[in-house]
Design a protein around this nucleic acid. Structure first.
Length: 696
RNA sequence: GCGCCCAUAGCUCAGUGGAUAGAGCAAGCGACUUCUAAUCGCUAGGCCGCAGGUUCGAUCCCUGCUGGGCGCGCCA
């Protein structure tokens, strides 16, 4: 086999070893079926090719036991495997060195490693930054909604899990060619914002005291300050609740005020007297959102569009959606019972009458005071994401204005009502069809809102939008809690002896996102004091992003500070370190004046086990990325990247320094291999949302 | 009560209808005059929660049970 023949193979071969071997297995199988005169559809036989469990078996193995059954080929697995092995051997495939059969029916392939290695390296370096990219999703638009923090307080680590998952999913889908729009939906018209607005008003009247002082503390950011205000208002409610027997007027006053603020925010109208709540609320929200965006940018998270709950309301989108729901007879307005005077979406089974006091599964969309619930607004928003609100029956239009340029150069847009035109508009008209109009919508929201998401999709279904309902995905993830050790260190009562303790933003029991990031940067600098501030920040971001996505989405994370800040072992820092080491080799080679040969020459006849392991993991990147993306499972990609880094470390430790290599063929091969590793690692890290560090 | 999720090494977690269940941390031992030791090697550590069932084969699928978490609000 000459180099040119090998190159020709590279073009002719499918994208990876898996596909390459699968092709031959199918050929052999069809030969076998003809030989044995068996009439059976090959597609019915699963080809379960994988890395061999042990190196002694081979490089790739496949069980044929599932094919032997009575309703399949009705053959003994072992003899079936033997027969296939014979056929495959006769095919004289140059890339396959040896085919063996082991009990109870495995077909094992040992490959011609130098030959395969050459093809793999060639393929990676040809593709470059595109290695792993896929065009499956081209011309399909997906909206991914994530982050979604109430605009009333600082982000905490729970929000970080959301944004890290969301941003990783966005990047994975983009790697598969999808046109992805990342939307950050701001709940700026709910009770939480109202409470902070109340807090500011009460502070002004001198009716509220904040622990730590009523003013912003030196160096305190606005979102942190609002967190204190929010907690203080929550406490005021709690205290009023406790004395409601003796002083009922205290609680009544607070509730009255909250109601007034909520109404004002929802309608956006200026009050005839008293404070301008809507203006205050909008001012607070904008500042807090900017603070959240700054926090997220520290983790390299960015968005395409900000959407606002208040905009959904004030544009009339909810009103029109409500009319549509009502006109189609989907809503009810009970005159008695718990939901008297509300507009509800009925979900209860009419056959079995719910007992008084029992829970009803009906969902209230409009409260008896006429205000809309979160779910209601979310239905309208979901319709818009699919472009369904272009329907003349709804026909609500929005304006889109630039919010600002993000840290990565991506322009962030903000959705506004068509009346808000006078805000800083720059330049030309923006086609409103540019946003939304998705084929598929993915909502990254924690698992506690599963029922609400179901209601949402069921509403679409009842409106007749069944395709859209089917194309809506609730990407549910479990919450972040505090480990017992970390909770105890924060002064939380841990006498109950639980393994973990839930956070509570309302009570101020939480770890704030920026505090975690700052602590991580500090730890990086303690570990390696010579690091630049920028490198430490990137390493810290990698550590946190990795920590937030390495778990199954169904896994509750009990955040432990020691664990989250660790910078060795199975961490994001390890990935960066491996990448930096690989880059260092290339730098040093370059410094010594070494130039990689233009063409990849024949590889050494024998490859080290560590070289081979690294090669086949590189080869498997596109397949792993595609699978992780299809399953919306960032943790799968994290695991892949860790394995790759780990195999590189193994190679690094177990082969002599390339710089001192005297055998030119070996030196060239290893240099090429490091190059391919750098390319693959770098590509994977970017999909994970890391900024790859060439040195650290 | 009803519904959803989780249970794998001391701890935190991967894992797959298939061969001897894997990492990291912690513990013990060892490797820096050698391309970055934020690394690597070795040792030790497992009724894969329990009991049935399906299967040639189950840690994985099904049923029941136990323990834990979450949801069931005119909050979001």
């Amino acid at each position: 086999m000459t180099t040119s023949e090998a190159l020709h193979m590279a073009e002719a071969t499918p994208r990876d070893l898996h596909e390459y071997l699968t092709t031959f297995i199918k050929q052999a199988l069809s030969t076998y079926l003809a030989q044995e005169q068996i009439d059976f559809a090959i597609e019915q036989l699963p080809i379960d090719l994988r890395f061999s469990a042990q190196a002694s078996f081979g490089d790739y193995s496949m069980p044929v036991m599932p094919w032997g059954g009575k309703n399949k080929l009705a053959r003994k697995p072992l003899s079936l495997a033997e027969a296939l092995a014979t056929i495959l051997r006769n095919m004289q495939i140059p890339a396959i060195q040896e085919i063996t059969v082991t009990a109870p029916g495995f077909l094992n392939f040992r490959l011609n490693r130098p030959f395969i290695g050459q093809v793999i390296i060639e393929r990676v370096l040809d593709a470059g930054a595109d290695f792993g990219q896929n065009d499956t999703g081209v011309e399909t638009k997906i909206v991914v909604e994530h982050t979604n923090i109430n605009s009333n307080k600082a982000a905490h680590v729970g929000h970080l899990r959301n944004s890290c998952i969301g941003d990783s999913v966005v990047r994975m889908l983009r790697s598969q060619g999808y046109h992805v729009e990342a939307q950050n939906y701001i709940d700026d018209s709910g009770v939480q914002v109202a409470d902070v607005v109340m807090g500011f008003t009460l502070l002004q009247k001198g009716e509220l005291q904040l622990p730590g002082g009523n003013e912003e503390m030196p160096g305190e950011s606005f979102d942190y300050y609002c967190s204190r205000v929010y907690v203080a208002v929550g406490k005021a409610f709690d205290e009023a609740e406790q004395v409601k027997e003796s002083q009922p007027e205290k609680l009544d006053r607070l509730k009255e005020m909250r109601k007034a603020v909520l109404h004002a925010i929802e309608h956006g109208s200026e009050p005839e007297a008293g404070p301008d709540y809507p203006l205050l609320a909008s001012d607070i929200s904008r500042q807090i959102v900017q603070a959240h965006l700054t926090t997220m940018s520290r983790l390299n998270v960015s968005y395409d569009l900000l959407t606002w709950e208040s905009t959904v309301l004030r544009s009339g989108l909810w009103k029109r959606t409500f009319a549509m729901l009502r006109d189609r007879g989907l809503l009810e307005k009970p005159e008695t019972g718990k939901a008297a005077g509300c507009w509800i979406l009925p979900f209860g089974n009419e056959e079995e009458q719910v007992e008084e006091g029992d829970h009803s599964s009906d969902k209230i969309l409009v409260r008896s005071d006429g205000t809309a619930t979160y779910t209601a607004k979310d239905i309208a928003y979901q319709l818009w994401k699919f472009g369904l609100t272009d329907d003349p029956q709804i026909g609500v239009q929005f304006n889109f204005t630039p919010w600002g340029r993000q840290h990565d150069g991506r322009l962030l847009w903000s959705m506004q009502t068509s009346e808000q035109e006078n805000e800083s508009r720059i330049g030309e008209e923006v086609d409103p069809r540019r946003f939304g109009h998705a084929k598929r919508v993915i909502n990254v929201i924690d698992v506690r809102q599963s029922y609400l998401q179901q209601v949402l999709y069921e509403s679409l279904r009842r409106l007749g939008f069944t395709d859209q309902a089917d194309n809506s995905t609730h990407l549910a993830y479990e919450v972040v809690t505090l480990s017992a050790a970390t909770a105890e260190r924060m002064g939380i009562d841990t006498s109950a002896g639980h393994d973990f303790y839930a956070m509570s933003g309302r009570k101020g029991i939480e770890i704030k996102a920026d505090d975690l990031i700052n602590a991580s940067i500090k730890r990086m600098l303690e570990t390696k004091p010579e690091l630049s501030a920028e490198t430490a920040a990137v390493a810290a971001a990698s550590a946190i992003r990795y920590f937030m996505i390495r778990y199954n989405l169904q896994q509750v994370i009990a955040l432990d500070m020691d664990e989250a800040l660790r910078s060795n072992g199975d961490t994001g820092v390890y990935l960066q370190y491996a990448y930096a080491r690989a880059n260092s080799i290339l730098r040093k080679l370059d410094k010594t004046g070494y130039k990689l040969p233009e063409k990849l020459e024949l590889l050494p006849e024998q490859l080290e086990q560590s070289e081979w392991e690294l090669l086949r993991h590189i080869d498997a990147y596109p397949r792993n990325l595609a699978e992780a993306s299809a399953k919306l499972a960032p943790n799968m990609l994290a695991t892949y990247a860790y394995d790759l880094a780990s195999h590189f470390s193994d190679f690094y430790e177990h082969t002599p320094p390339i710089l001192k290599e005297t055998d030119e063929r070996v030196k060239a091969f290893r240099a090429w291999l490091v190059s391919a590793t750098v390319q693959t690692m770098g590509n994977a890290l970017r999909v994970l949302g890391f900024v790859p560090l060439e040195s650290m």
